[in-house]
Amino acid sequence: MADLILHHYPMSPFAEKARLMLGFKGLSWRSVFIPSVMPKPDVVALTGGYRRTPLLQIGADIYCDTALIAEVLEHHRPEPALFPAHLKGLARVVSQWADTSLFWASMAYSLSPKGAAALFASQPPEAAQAFAADRGAMSSGMNRLRPGDAAGAYRSYLRRLAHMLHDQPYLLGEQPCVADFAAYHPLWFTRRMVPAMSGILEATPEVLAWLDRMHTLGHGSAQRLSSTEAIAVAAAATPEPVAGEHFQDDHGIALGSRVTVAAESFGTEPSEGILVAATRTRYTIAREDERAGRVHVHFPRIGYVLKEVRV
């Protein structure tokens, strides 16, 4: 099988979720660093528009969103399981909450004026300004928590996690599952990226001990790859066939139609291509790029909007 290539940057919390899942699975992977703010021409060459971090590339197949990346890694190496059979539904529900409600409370708290100043203290002022402008554009139209409201919500969520960890080492039992990785990364950002804001974690020692356990899973074995080399990998490969996958039509949009797929909120730049698969869990579009060649770009259904492009 082709190499696993993760497109990411070090301070991205969702990238940390993916890196730690790779470590949990004991996988080797190629590491491509991408910019934290636009422009991202090499990312867009692969996705056609989607610019959120991280991406997982396998040959000419591009997987967007860590919810889908988790599924792909589970298929690639089933054990140890991210989705234990007896916990699949609960693990997914907790993960979705952690990737949304917990994440946004954590970010609004951690990147309050004090936190943002600490995060960019060693960088020139224009770096902080560019980051703020970029994330402002990505969140246009979103209802964002104010720092005070976020702090209250974050404390409540941390107590809930502590209750889950009261008599067991991981959120849903004796072994980590996808719920742990989803809950870990926003707290990792607070603790590791903006330690000036990490005092909020001290009221929940069970959570701190769990963070330490999760940290020991590591990131697997990574080797650097340039974005130019990653694009060349895509250009030299052929997307995996999708023929025979079950078609679930919820939109009245036929396979073979020109469509866009975009996130429901935050980073809603659409990717455009030909709809080649719409299963019960994902959309797949085929697109052509002058550098990357023919690629298949995959998105989870939940959290994404499919629209037909009408001429």
Rank of each mutant, 00 (worst) to 15 (best):
C177L: 10
L172T: 08
F131N: 03
R192F: 13
L201T: 07
A150F: 06
L165W: 00
L201G: 01
I200G: 03
T216A: 15
V194S: 10
Q129K: 06
L145P: 02
T216G: 08
T204N: 10
T190D: 05
S156A: 15
H215D: 14
A128E: 08
D212Q: 11
L158R: 02
L172D: 06
Q168G: 08
A130Q: 05
E202V: 10
R146T: 14
H166C: 06
Y154W: 11
A127S: 01
M164E: 02
F189K: 10
M138N: 08
E174S: 12
H166W: 01
A151G: 13
D167Y: 00
A196V: 11
Y154T: 12
G136S: 03
A132F: 08
Q168F: 07
N143A: 15
M142D: 14
S139F: 12
M142F: 15
P169L: 00
M193P: 04
G173F: 00
P205S: 13
M197N: 13
L158D: 08
L172V: 09
A196P: 03
A162V: 05
P186T: 08
G152P: 01
A132T: 09
L158N: 10
D149C: 13
R159H: 14
G173I: 02
V207L: 05
M138G: 12
R144E: 13
L161Q: 01
M142W: 14
D180R: 01
R192Y: 10
A209S: 04
V207C: 04
A183F: 07
P169T: 00
S140T: 15
R159Q: 11
A132M: 11
P205R: 00
R146W: 12
M197F: 04
L187V: 14
A203I: 02
F131E: 01
E126P: 05
R192V: 10
Y184S: 06
W210Y: 06
A196G: 09
L211Y: 10
Q175F: 15
C177Y: 05
L158P: 13
P176E: 01
A128R: 05
A162H: 00
A137Q: 03
A182I: 02
R135C: 04
E202H: 13
T190M: 10
C177I: 06
R135T: 00
A132K: 02
R192I: 12
A151I: 09
A183K: 08
G199L: 07
M138V: 02
H185E: 06
A183L: 05
M214S: 10
A150G: 08
L208Q: 13
A127T: 07
P169Y: 00
Q175D: 15
F181G: 07
A153I: 06
S198W: 10
F189C: 09
G173R: 01
A203L: 00
A179L: 09
A132D: 08
H185G: 02
A137M: 11
F181H: 12
V178W: 06
A130N: 09
M138F: 14
A137H: 02
S156D: 11
L165E: 02
E206Q: 11
R144P: 07
L187K: 04
F131I: 03
Q168D: 00
Q175V: 14
W188G: 03
A153S: 14
A127Y: 06
H163L: 12
L171V: 11
Y157S: 15
G173A: 04
E202S: 11
Q168L: 00
R160D: 14
G173S: 01
A137D: 11
P186L: 11
F189H: 12
L201H: 06
